Amino acid sequence: MLFKHQHLLHELRRTGVQATADILSVTTLGGGGSLRALWASDEDLSSRWLDVRLKLRVVPPNTMNLPFEATVLTRVHTLKLQGGKVLVWYDPTDTSRLVVDYEADLERHQHFQAEADHYRAESEMLSHRYEQRPGLAWTPVAGRLLPVQAALGPGHGRILTGGPLGELLAAPAQAAVAAVRDRAGELLPQLAADWFARHDLRFDQPYGNLPDGAGPADAAGTTVAAALALVSLLSGRIVRTETAVTGALGPDGALVAVAGLKRAAAGAGRGHATRLLLPAANEADGQRLADKQRQGLDLVFAATLAEAVRSALAKHPVKGHTPPV
């Protein structure tokens, strides 16, 4: 196997010279991975590698020393191209003793991957400001703003959950459907009396990762969001794109106060919401939040699900919406 030279890398880091080398040519030699794996974003970068022969033009950091060419066998974590650059270490007394710093190369690409993940997460959080479709509501969970999506299909009244929130959504989804079903005459008067018995409903988190440490206490605050997503789906009225929602629901349809209001406001603000709908029971807590803790949010309070629907949903259905019967 190649790369018995890790000891050489560590030795030259102590005694050698660091330089940047231009890649003159690349020849792949096979190895522990495949070309396809090198581009796979869902694999652990540290487990991907490819054996290559690189012909290099090394440019010493001391301009008094002339550039020189070298050919090395090495390991790469992302496919290198002719004209690219790699970091190397070499022995100034014997330039044939040269090694590519593939460990630094891995660290560099892990850094870029982390940045890409960060920007992707930021893009996902921004999407609630422009993604206008029925059946989608946004709610802060464990300090992050996450989407909750409702979907339907023919069935027998089952309530399914999936996505990263998965099991945590099970109880909130049950409570949300029960609350909407019990008040369908007010909220969704076009529905037939047996509509819920003839359809299955699914709730999930369509994108974004579940925050570390999220648990049932955080999930309880997703209940109102799940109910609004369902009413939105069936009415065709989108949840207002600037609005995030938090709150649990009691058996009587009242919005139940949630804990961790400061954290919920922080998550909504970081997710670029400008309006946070809360249970009326949290109004005193909301008034005690300092301006900095409010994250610039307009706090709106609702006592019942009907009030939450009026406050959070657009007044009219999206164009082309066909009401379910």
Rank of each mutant, 00 (worst) to 15 (best):
K55V: 05
Q149A: 10
Q82D: 04
A284I: 06
T222A: 12
A281S: 08
T223A: 08
V141R: 06
R108K: 07
L188V: 06
L187S: 02
A19G: 07
L160H: 11
F3A: 14
D42M: 03
W39I: 09
L210K: 10
E307N: 06
L289T: 02
T246D: 09
N65I: 10
V318S: 04
D51F: 15
D204N: 14
L56I: 04
W195R: 11
S96L: 12
A192R: 15
G33T: 14
Q295G: 02
P134S: 14
A273H: 05
P251S: 07
A268K: 11
L278E: 00
L234F: 05
L277S: 01
A19D: 00
A306V: 06
V52K: 13
H7Q: 15
L38F: 10
D285C: 04
R288A: 15
G135N: 02
D204I: 03
V17R: 00
P172A: 05
D194K: 09
L230W: 12
A308N: 03
W89T: 02
D101M: 00
A121E: 07
L289V: 00
E242G: 06
Q190S: 13
A192M: 09
D194L: 10
P67Q: 00
E43Q: 14
A151Q: 14
A193Y: 10
S123Q: 12
P211S: 03
A116W: 09
R133G: 03
R53P: 04
G31H: 08
R181T: 11
G286D: 02
G162N: 13
G30P: 01
H111W: 13
G163M: 01
F203D: 03
A312Q: 02
R97P: 00
A176G: 05
G253S: 01
Q190V: 04
F203N: 05
L126T: 00
A40V: 03
L126S: 06
Q205H: 15
H199S: 01
A70M: 00
S25C: 08
A290P: 09
V86R: 05
A273T: 06
G267F: 11
V300L: 12
D218V: 08
L187M: 02
A179W: 12
E186P: 00
G166W: 06
E283W: 10
G320V: 06
E69C: 10
R270L: 06
V177C: 01
G269C: 09
L50T: 04
A302H: 03
V76K: 07
G296A: 03
A121M: 11
A175Q: 11
T71G: 01
